[in-house]
Computed example of a mutant assay.
Amino acid sequence: MRTPVFLATGLLAGCVSLLPTSRQDVNNPWNDFDEAKKSFDQIVPYTTDMDTVRQLGFDPYKTPNMQILNHSQVVRAVLPSPLQERATIPSGILDCMKAQEGCVGYFMEPSRIDRNRVGNFALDFLNFKRDTLTTGWKFGALIVIIDNRVVYKQWSGRPRIEETELRRNPLGPLQGIGESLKPLP
């Protein structure tokens, strides 16, 4: 009776395709970091209008997951605390501070993140060893608008994400049993 169990386990040990995968895709019009950055680079403060910003993919009402910031949120996002000397504050942010309610910011972080479990299926399935590879990219954009015109922009990001997480459980499937036996409060 043990032979079929060992045979099945041996066959499954090489089946990496049976390991779980996941994808986190913040819906956006760009396929990679470079595309997002290229669109962002076409925005020119004090020149680009809101129609052009929308055409480039930064439309808060059509592009999912964009955050709309009021003028005080924009200032907090850009300026360090305590406030620096007025001469060092970017002109677009000074104008935003003067415009008050007439200033709005758009913030978004488009990304594509893939998580794939790699390694030995049997060790993963039995919870002895789980090896997860995370890859992808993330782009952050802040665009500040006054009277339908961009006055400030700022970007950040991670063009290439590659992380490995290795979790070992010497007791395998019994590893978390002690926690599950604790009485509820």
Rank of each mutant, 00 (worst) to 15 (best):
A87V: 11
N70W: 11
A87G: 09
P80A: 06
E101W: 11
S72H: 13
G92K: 05
V75N: 02
Q67F: 10
Q84F: 01
V78P: 10
S81N: 06
I93W: 08
C96S: 00
P90I: 07
Q100V: 03
S91G: 02
T88C: 01
Q73M: 09
L94F: 02
S91A: 14
G92S: 07
P80N: 06
V74D: 07
G92E: 06
I93D: 03
R86A: 15
D95L: 06
A77Q: 04
A99S: 11
A99V: 10
G92F: 09
N65F: 14
L94N: 08
D95Q: 12
Q84N: 00
T88V: 08
V104G: 03
D95K: 09
S81Y: 07
L94Y: 00
G102H: 14
N65S: 15
S91T: 13
P90V: 06
G102P: 13
C103S: 01
L69V: 04
N70F: 12
Q73E: 15
S91P: 00
S81Q: 07
L94Q: 14
P90C: 06
K98G: 00
H71R: 03
S81R: 06
C103D: 01
L79W: 11
G102W: 11
Q67M: 12
L69S: 00
S91W: 04
C103L: 06
I68G: 04
G105V: 14
L69A: 02
E101L: 10
S72F: 12
L83P: 14
H71G: 01
E85C: 05
Y106N: 06
R76Q: 14
C103Q: 00
I93K: 02
K98Q: 06
T88P: 00
C96I: 04
V78W: 13
E85Q: 08
H71S: 11
P80R: 09
D95N: 12
T88M: 09
Q100T: 05
I93Q: 02
A77K: 04
T88S: 15
Q67R: 09
L69F: 09
V104P: 00
H71W: 15
L79N: 00
Q67G: 04
N70E: 13
V104R: 14
D95W: 00
A77Y: 01
A77T: 02
E85K: 10
M66T: 07
G105R: 02
